[in-house]
Lab assay of single mutants.
Amino acid sequence: QVALSRTQVCGILREELFQGDAFHQSDTHIFIIMGASGDLAKKKIYPTIWWLFRDGLLPENTFIVGYARSRLTVADIRKQSEPFFKATPEEKLKLEDFFARNSYVAGQYDDAASYQRLNSHMNALHLGSQANRLFYLALPPTVYEAVTKNIHESCMSQIGWNRIIVEKPFGRDLQSSDRLSNHISSLFREDQIYRIDHYLGKEMVQNLMVLRFANRIFGPIWNRDNIACVILTFKEPFGTEGRGGYFDEFGIIRDVMQNHLLQMLCLVAMEKPASTNSDDVRDEKVKVLKCISEVQANNVVLGQYVGNPDGEGEATKGYLDDPTVPRGSTTATFAAVVLYVENERWDGVPFILRCGKALNERKAEVRLQFHDVAGDIFHQQCKRNELVIRVQPNEAVYTKMMTKKPGMFFNPEESELDLTYGNRYKNVKLPDAYERLILDVFCGSQMHFVRSDELREAWRIFTPLLHQIELEKPKPIPYIYGSRGPTEADELMKRVGFQYEGTYKWVNPHKL
């Protein structure tokens, strides 16, 4: 086992960053958080920038500027975001240094004079007029057009580079997404736009490419001749908990499936790229999406959770019991969808996408189930092999396979070949997804960000279904809070070829 401390991990990262040409360590950078008073800024962006600063992973002359409508001070920003920093008493001095680099400007999102004030403020910072500028839009999409237009007109660096990070949702359907994309691309070049999907920053999602293309053993079996089906799962054990009003506007397909799960599907299904260059990788992902037809209604199961009468606390409440959810809402909190990649490698292999709230566990994984062994000599005792990439929690890679049961006879039983990170790298604290992705933006690497043509294809696949749901308002199937979801989803999976045995229990190697 390799035991690495946080300091050692960050030392390795620093070495990698400083050796590259793309990370300008000594240049002045300004990180501007648009929507600095909001939840995302408070819980994710400010803490992430602090962790990067604490670990010495930001360029040395980096300033952080918050911008929002609320009249706040840096002290206010500190008060609301610091509880999420997880700072230790030993880091007190470092924390003071961090907040000394912070400033805040209040202004409207659609007022040109406010942006001119913001620009004057940035120019007044040390070497601010020639600094590289990175704008993070932690804002609702309704203000994107006004904000990007004003940034472009008043706040661009004339000497350094300018980059803009856009948070999902990128529209509600193909038409609104196209409108937003066309607007942003009329102001910024594609190499300046970073559409963030934080799932692409997760260690195991990034590991998929290495697993596939750096190991000879997987190449020959990664196709329709050997793989019976692919299941991509995202499960949350909690409901909307008072935030249903926002969720109800989008629903589970827009929230998770059309982005996170579809991105994971691309990494499983794509061909080997010409290189690890950002556009070479994204070219292959677009090719996969172009091979997927629009979702067919007979390959869809929609569910909505109801309270568990035997549960406790939140578990007793259904989705419609959330006071922020519109009365009688038919918005799905669970969806199972089957897609097919219609190309030579994957023809006929079902890709089953499942996601839901208020389920029995927290889990995100990719599961490849292989065909049955031909010419069975073990009297149907063999179960199908599976390769599982567990994204969260407890990152893991393992192969479910058959071995001989101890004893006199040739009785096979299920076991696993474990390729888990935790076994080799004991207690290594890896940077989280937002840390990686923000560092990628500083480096100018777009590999783990969504390109406009990729986004367009993703919406093309799901828009007809979303429009049909909005028009017909089908009643989702009720499922109990804390269950596996509607049984109809299991029946759909069985119908397209997935075999669920229920006889195997994964042993978490992190707890051995």
Rank of each mutant, 00 (worst) to 15 (best):
T333R: 01
N394Y: 13
K287G: 13
R460T: 02
E472G: 15
C443Q: 03
V391L: 14
E435V: 10
T276Y: 05
F498G: 14
P273K: 00
K405A: 15
L339A: 07
I469G: 05
H467V: 08
L471N: 08
Q304Y: 04
Y481Q: 10
R456P: 06
V388A: 10
Y319N: 00
R436P: 13
K405I: 15
W459S: 13
T487Q: 10
L359G: 01
F334K: 02
H467R: 15
C266N: 04
Q392D: 14
D418I: 05
Y319S: 00
G502H: 14
K272L: 10
V338W: 01
T333N: 01
D432P: 14
D310W: 13
E395G: 14
A364F: 05
Q258W: 07
E342P: 04
Y500P: 15
L471K: 10
N360R: 06
S452A: 06
M408E: 15
K287C: 06
P323W: 07
D432N: 13
Y398D: 03
C291Q: 04
D255V: 04
R436M: 12
K426H: 12
Q258I: 15
M447K: 04
P509A: 12
L439D: 01
Q499Y: 14
T503P: 08
V373I: 12
Y319M: 02
Y481M: 07
R460V: 00
R345E: 07
H371N: 10
L289H: 02
L320S: 11
V338K: 13
K475R: 12
R384K: 12
E342F: 05
D376M: 10
V295W: 03
Y421E: 15
I389R: 03
R367P: 02
A396N: 15
I469T: 13
S483A: 10
V306M: 12
D453I: 01
D372H: 05
S483Y: 04
T331G: 09
L471I: 07
P323G: 12
V450F: 14
A297W: 11
L419D: 06
G482A: 06
Y434F: 15
S483G: 10
S293N: 09
E395I: 08
L419Q: 04
Y398Q: 14
E435S: 14
F498D: 15
D255P: 00
G407K: 03
R354L: 14
Q446E: 04
G307P: 07
I377S: 03
D347C: 12
I292K: 02
R327E: 07
P273Y: 00
N343V: 02
L289S: 02
L302D: 01
E491Y: 07
P412D: 06
T420R: 08
N411F: 03
V428R: 07
N277G: 14
K400N: 15
G303C: 03
R345N: 11
E454F: 14
V450N: 06
P326A: 09
M402G: 11
G497W: 10
K473Q: 11
G313S: 09
G348R: 09
A332G: 08
R354P: 03
K272F: 05
R484M: 10
Y500C: 14
Y421H: 15
D310R: 11
V341I: 06
Q381L: 09
V341R: 01
M493N: 05
L265N: 01
T399H: 08
Y504A: 15
K357P: 02
R456E: 12
Q258G: 12
E488S: 04
L262D: 00
K475Y: 06
E435L: 07
R451L: 02
P476K: 01
T333Y: 01
E314L: 12
T399K: 03
P309D: 11
F409R: 12
V391R: 15
T503V: 14
K475G: 10
M270R: 01
R484A: 11
K473I: 07
P464W: 03
E435M: 12
D372R: 06
P509T: 13
G303N: 02
E365A: 04
Y421N: 14
V349E: 03
D279L: 06
L437D: 15
G307Y: 03
E435A: 14
K383Q: 14
P431Q: 08
L417N: 15
V366P: 03
K400I: 07
D310Y: 13
R384N: 13
E491P: 03
D418P: 14
S293C: 06
R451Y: 02
D490E: 14
K317P: 09
E457P: 02
M257I: 15
A274E: 14
P326S: 14
L439P: 05
C291D: 12
P464T: 10
Y421W: 14
I438A: 01
Y425Q: 15
M257D: 00
K473N: 10
D283S: 11
E454N: 04
P393C: 02
I292G: 01
N385A: 10
D255Q: 14
L368N: 01
F370A: 02
W506Y: 15
I377G: 03
V306I: 07
V366G: 01
P273G: 00
L437Y: 09
D418R: 06
A374F: 12
L471D: 08
Q304V: 04
R451I: 00
R424Y: 10
T420W: 15
M447W: 12
F449P: 00
G422F: 09
V388R: 13
L289W: 01
K511E: 11
G502L: 13
G497C: 15
S483Q: 04
V301Y: 03
G303S: 01
G356D: 03
E488T: 07
I377K: 03
L339F: 11
D322Y: 07
T330P: 12
E501H: 11
L289R: 01
Q392V: 12
